[in-house]
Amino acid sequence: MSKTILMLAAALLAAAVILGAFGAHALKAKLTDDLMQVYKTGVEYHFYHALGLLLISVLAVQMPSTLINWSVICLTAGIVIFSGSLYVLAITGIRWLGAITPIGGLSFIAGWVLLFLAVWKR
């Protein structure tokens, strides 16, 4: 599983770089300052949690656990829901998408709590 987590982390980090560059170059002139900040927040959280997945891939070798696997699922869902909703909101201006964003935030929190529990149980 650690190889899968490492590959997932690498793919998500590559996507974060691509999306960050896209925002900086293709969207900068098209988005208002407020929407650009929304987009940047999506990229930042995408990066932070993808880096977290990279670290978790190392932990998964040392202490394989179902809780770690669920942590990975929650963090990945968080990236998709939290950052994804912010990307779409910024590009389209559809404000109701902001209502979805907290679900991604809860997924992030659940992922980190599950990692805590995995380490605590060890």
Score class of each variant (00 low, 15 high):
residue 1 M to W: 10
residue 7 M to I: 14
residue 9 A to I: 11
residue 10 A to W: 11
residue 16 A to N: 02
residue 19 L to P: 01
residue 23 G to I: 00
residue 23 G to P: 02
residue 25 H to E: 04
residue 28 K to D: 03
residue 30 K to P: 00
residue 31 L to D: 08
residue 34 D to W: 02
residue 36 M to H: 05
residue 39 Y to D: 03
residue 41 T to S: 00
residue 45 Y to C: 04
residue 50 A to P: 06
residue 50 A to S: 14
residue 51 L to A: 11
residue 51 L to V: 14
residue 53 L to F: 12
residue 54 L to T: 10
residue 55 L to G: 15
residue 55 L to F: 14
residue 55 L to V: 12
residue 56 I to F: 10
residue 57 S to Y: 06
residue 58 V to A: 12
residue 59 L to R: 06
residue 63 M to I: 07
residue 63 M to Y: 08
residue 64 P to G: 10
residue 66 T to Y: 00
residue 68 I to V: 14
residue 70 W to G: 10
residue 71 S to A: 15
residue 73 I to A: 12
residue 74 C to Y: 11
residue 75 L to R: 07
residue 76 T to R: 08
residue 78 G to S: 09
residue 81 I to D: 04
residue 83 S to E: 02
residue 85 S to G: 06
residue 85 S to L: 06
residue 86 L to H: 02
residue 88 V to E: 00
residue 90 A to H: 03
residue 90 A to Y: 04
residue 91 I to M: 13
residue 91 I to K: 04
residue 92 T to W: 12
residue 92 T to N: 10
residue 92 T to A: 11
residue 96 W to S: 14
residue 97 L to A: 07
residue 100 I to H: 06
residue 100 I to C: 08
residue 101 T to W: 09
residue 104 G to W: 06
residue 106 L to F: 12
residue 110 A to K: 04
residue 110 A to Q: 03
residue 111 G to N: 13
residue 111 G to E: 12
residue 111 G to F: 12
residue 112 W to I: 07
residue 112 W to D: 08
residue 113 V to C: 12
residue 116 F to V: 14
residue 117 L to T: 08
